[in-house]
Amino acid sequence: MNGFIDALTSQTFLQNALWGSVLASIACGIIGPYVVVRKIGYLAGGIAHAVLGGMGAAYFLGKSPLGGALIAAIGAALLIGWVSLHEHRQEDIMISALWAVGMAAGILFISRTPGYNVDLMSYLFGNILMIPRRDLYLIAFLDLGIAVTVLLFFKQFLAVSFDPEFARLRGISVEFFSLLLLTLVALTVVILIQVVGLVLVIALLTLPAAIAGNYTRTLGRMMVLSILLGFLFTSGGLALSYQPDLPAGATIVMLAGGGYLLSTLGRRFRRP
């Protein structure tokens, strides 16, 4: 652990990685509770995997993979959101299709890209140690967008998540706010992919919020605790993985999973 702290003071890439974990924790702490209370973890997983299609296409065309990821994530979120609102019975199939087809498209694009082949593993499992400074600025900007949107429309998001029928009767556009919320989920997914990769995104989106849900009774407090837990897991995972040179993303997820297990068991023992 001391080795990590020493390295942190001298190595820019580790400082960037730590900033990456802070910024990712903010996004997943704000959006994770919505994913948990609305039970849309599978939907978020579908968006995350569909993103590979966008990243692959961008890579093939010689554009920024992050840009491709953003477009694919928002596109997938709006498509699933629309299907969920209008053809609810098809939702599950739609998510499964996007999940698999998105990944398949990504792999095809990457295989057809000439030249030095991209490290597919870093898309799938993340590589927080390689995160460049300019991506941090973009992530900070996305964080700000997510935080401001949630602050402005907190009551509408709460109403639409808790009782959409009642919200509709009060003149709230359930469709607009549901799709806006899914767009925020998509942005968060893109941010988290930089940290843990697309396969592990769902862990950071659900586990800190699920633990927070065990100890808090309002959505706002659940968000604050989720942010703190998210930072604990990401920075902790980073520190633990540094010395033995383990993959950071996987270590972070194992830590979050362990935390969730302990919290759930603890809850069982407290209230049998």
Binding site: P33, F166, I172
Partner: peptide, 30 residues
């Protein structure tokens, strides 16, 4: 918006993290 509706309460999640006050405030939407 001039009507007040009290739905059957099986239709939402009773474990949703929301207080009584915040639930009642939803009536003010609109």
């Amino acid at each position: 918006r001039q009507l007040g509706y009290v739905p059957q309460f099986i239709h939402f999640d009773r474990h949703f993290p929301i207080s009584v006050c915040d639930t009642v405030l939803q009536g003010r939407l609109g």
